[in-house]
Design a protein around this nucleic acid. Structure first.
Lengths: 152, 152
DNA sequence: TATAATAAGGTCAGAGATAGTCAAAGGAAG
DNA sequence: CTTCCTTTGACTATCTCTGACCTTATTATA
């Protein structure tokens, strides 16, 4: 018979697979669901979701408390960004770039603050001295450079 | 269940974002709005808007009383950055820009991560399509644009 | 004025809601 | 039978929310 801890481990991993942003669970709720004592959840997390194994766990006690688990591999949206970068053409308009950036924010790949910085870097205002027919080319270079710097 | 304290925290932060001068709130009014006891407002302020987190809180009792909250982390870098921006010439080399950035990091004005992003944005690599004699001019524009975006 | 009434905000301890720790008991594998 | 992993539960720590009671400032009134 499979050990309960393994079942809980699989359950949490399945939850993690369904989201790109990490999960947030309630210890007592999970314990109730699996009909075990709450501390068993700690046991599972302590033995299966360690930093060494690529997980980042945070928690908070008190009312509205939670345990959040993130897979560190999610932190590197390497492939997604790489795909975007490679699929980007030789030029990009300010508008299109901002659409990309808004998506990155929505998908939690970059923070809103970073998106502001990047928008400032690639705005027409910042590039006003670049010949207008070259501007979109320069913009895509800056954009790709920034993105590359973020996945390293 | 989302914690009420977090909701109130977000509400206050949203108010703060809308103004550069700090906000002034009425404790009872806020409490009524969120259907909680007034002292919960104190709790939120005491736990989320501490000096350590970069907020300056003042209050006054009695008729016409209020609680004022100011974000101090924004004000100081503002003047410093503004000074830097204004004193910057019409062009800047990649090397000089990086020296500035390293200083900003040392003085805790920007994070190391942000400095990486900015370095990527203004590197010669990112600007390779810009005519080399114009490159330092474009770089300073991007640099100033980013800095301006950060103090808003 | 001096005093009372009113209108704020402040404090603190306790209740409630979660999560964490640790040691002992239970079981499976060798 | 020994060792190592799992399960349990008593006890602890932390965070949130509430309410009773306190302090201070302003305004009205004698």
């Amino acid at each position: 018979m499979a050990r309960l801890s393994d079942v809980i481990e699989d359950f949490i991993k399945a939850l993690l697979k369904e989201t790109d942003t990490g999960i947030e669970i309630q210890r007592n709720e999970l314990a109730t669901y699996f009909k075990c004592v709450p501390s068993q959840i700690n046991y599972v997390i302590g033995t299966r979701f360690t930093a060494e194994k690529g997980y980042f766990v945070e928690s908070k006690r008190g009312g509205g408390g939670y345990i959040s688990i993130k897979s560190v591999s999610i932190k590197k949206p390497y492939e997604y960004l790489m795909h975007i970068i490679l699929s980007m053409g030789d030029e990009i308009s300010q508008q299109s770039a901002e659409i990309y950036l808004n998506n990155f924010v929505d998908y939690n790949i970059i923070t809103k603050e970073d998106s502001q910085i990047i928008k400032a870097a690639i705005s027409n205002g910042a590039l006003r001295k670049v010949d207008s027919e070259k501007r979109d080319m320069v913009r895509v270079d800056i954009f790709k450079n920034i993105m590359m710097s973020m996945i390293v």
